[in-house]
Design a protein around this nucleic acid. Structure first.
Lengths: 239, 239
DNA sequence: ATGACTTCTTGATGCAAATCAAACGCTGTC
DNA sequence: GACAGCGTTTGATTTGCATCAAGAAGTCAT
């Protein structure tokens, strides 16, 4: 186990590298990158990868599992700021103040690659393509959050949930999963927090979609029956 | 005019450098940085610094003036994603796809420093402190947007507006302005878009604060009468 | 100044989602 | 198998904000 783990800490033969890393690296550069991941770390379901206020030293790339990130306001309200899956990078929020700004909690047993940020920066200075890649990852997160702002400020419950499902489906599809089926790793309450609505409203909206023949809901298992209709709900909603 | 302008394109004697740049640079590094700003650019009130879809090539640092950034959904809904003032960096949204993801519109006559992104990256590789600075700026934007998500998903109209005012005051204060007075450069509608509420609600909430003796509103001029109460509204609002 | 236009304020009404409440269905434990 | 505990569904009611509407105040061009 230990042996296997240390053997495999190498980006060059990781099957997620096209998600985590820039494409088109030379063999030499790839070899350099293998040093970027210091170790791996397992997190049990419900466990914290990091907590708000923890000192920031490393970024994490998800190998397996599913996470949520959430911020907690002074008066204790929790806001889920995102859900993360394999190949995605966590911890960027910590760079600005050398402290993590949110909690990262595993929604299922997970394993992450630990990438000391100093090391990422050192390598970035040597490999311009990596530098650009890091910038893109951060920019992508900014753009994603712009989209969430639009969703929270402008959309109605049905649109939000449609957008949420379509986004999950698209990301899962990019990882080889079906476009018409998914398993929710989070509770209705967590979905609601992310989408700015109460768990009851999430549940009701699922039921509504189900009655309308758009999806089939069996607890956490969702089957998409009418992908187009879902898109229509997401877009066509000026009213 | 032209002469003065080319003379002044130098970060080393810019009075905003402690807002834009890392602190503690050596004289040599500072000299290198002077090359980062290619030119200056003026934008008239109402003008676009860049538009959604424009090719991304440069970042901008605001020298004078005030901007909003907004995204527009497919069905034409506009969402203000932020307000930017002197010393702040714009354009980070464009890095991920080499295209700008939002519009940047001047809310008053403005001048920006044009910083070609390739150039920023080149210099970042040579000056680690600049590299770290760029990362911090992007991380700060991610954290800011986390806060906006919390605001939009969890807070009520009064809390949102209080948070908005406190944030503006704090940023203006850091630029030497009064903590108890400010001039809004944006309309009620733009505030509403940013805060996820309608302009009528913004207006009513201003009136409410005014009746309660918390602020004094004269069109775009706001005077803060009770800073503490504003903070209380922002925090203490679980209900 | 005059009129046209934009922005802002205030009132009346309606509605989507929150809240309150209760029951149902999983999951795991003893 | 029974029981506890959590997550989910569904119904009844309330409410905060949106919407609709009209007028006031400020801005700009002629």
């Amino acid at each position: 186990m230990q042996a296997e783990s240390s053997f495999k800490v190498a980006c060059s033969n990781c099957n997620l590298r096209e998600l985590c890393l820039p494409i088109g690296l030379s063999t030499d550069e790839m070899k350099q990158l293998d040093g970027m991941v210091a170790t791996r770390k397992k997190v049990k379901q419900g466990g914290h990868l990091y907590s708000s206020g923890d000192p920031f030293t490393t970024l994490y790339a998800i190998r397996t599992g599913f996470f949520k990130t959430c911020v907690v306001s002074e008066d204790g309200r929790e806001q889920v700021t995102g859900f993360q899956m394999a190949g995605e990078i966590m911890g960027l929020d910590g760079i600005v103040s050398d402290k993590h700004n949110c909690h990262a909690i595993a929604l299922e047993d997970a394993e992450v690659c630990v990438m000391p940020f100093n090391h990422v920066e050192d390598l970035s200075r040597e490999i311009p393509m990596l530098q650009r890649h890091v910038h893109k990852i951060m920019s992508r997160e900014i753009v994603r959050e712009n989209g969430v702002m639009m969703l929270l400020a402008n959309m109605r419950a049905e649109e939000r949930l449609a957008a949420f499902l379509l986004n999950l489906l698209q990301r899962l599809h990019a990882r080889g999963y079906s476009k018409s089926e998914l398993i929710l790793r989070m509770t209705r309450e967590e979905i609601g927090s992310y989408l700015g609505m109460k768990l009851e409203t999430v549940s009701r909206t699922f039921s509504k979609f189900s009655e309308d023949g758009i999806i089939e809901v069996k607890q956490k298992n969702i089957r998409i029956l009418d992908h187009e209709k879902l898109k229509t709900i997401f877009n066509s909603s000026t009213c």
